[in-house]
C-alpha cells in the first residue's frame, strides 16, 4: 500500500468511530463530532469521507436491514480496519513530535 497521509477531517471521522465503541453509523457520528468540535458538522461530508476511507481500506462497512434497527430505517455501520488504526497512530505520533516541549502554550489557554 502506498503511504497515505490522513487529512484532519478524516482523522476526526476515524477517531469518532473509536469513541463510539469501535462501530458507528453517520447519525451518532455527526452528533458526537459536533459535541466534541463545538460546531456544525456536515452529514454529507462525513458520508463522503467514510466512502473515501472505505475505498482506501481504512474502514469497512456492513448494512443493517431496516427491520432490525430501532428506527425502522436502514443503516450503514462502519469499523476502523487495522491499517486505518495504524495510520491514526502514525498521525498521532507525528503530531506529538511537533508538540514536544510546547506544553506551556496549551496550559496558558
Amino acid at each position: 500500500m502506498t503511504r497515505y497521509g490522513l487529512g484532519g477531517f478524516e482523522q476526526q471521522v476515524l477517531l469518532t468511530i473509536l469513541q463510539l465503541g469501535g462501530e458507528a453509523y453517520s447519525v451518532p457520528m455527526v452528533l458526537e463530532m459536533e459535541q466534541r468540535s463545538g460546531r456544525e458538522v456536515s452529514q454529507a461530508a462525513v458520508y463522503i469521507a467514510l466512502r473515501r476511507l472505505e475505498g482506501k481500506g481504512l474502514v469497512v462497512s456492513r448494512m443493517e436491514a431496516a427491520e432490525r434497527t430501532d428506527s425502522g430505517r436502514e443503516r450503514r455501520w462502519f469499523r476502523v480496519t487495522p491499517s486505518g488504526l495504524e495510520l491514526l497512530r502514525d498521525a498521532h505520533r507525528t503530531m506529538s513530535r511537533f508538540w514536544e516541549g510546547l506544553d506551556g502554550i496549551v496550559e496558558e489557554r
Binding site: 453517520s26 447519525v27 452528533l31 452529514q43 458520508y47 430505517r73 436502514e74
Partner: peptide, 15 residues
C-alpha cells in the same frame, strides 16, 4: 439501496 440509506440517515439526523 445506498440512496435509501442516505435519505434514512438524513431523516434520522433531522429527528
Amino acid at each position: 439501496r445506498e440512496l435509501r440509506v442516505v435519505l434514512d440517515e438524513l431523516s434520522e439526523l433531522h429527528a
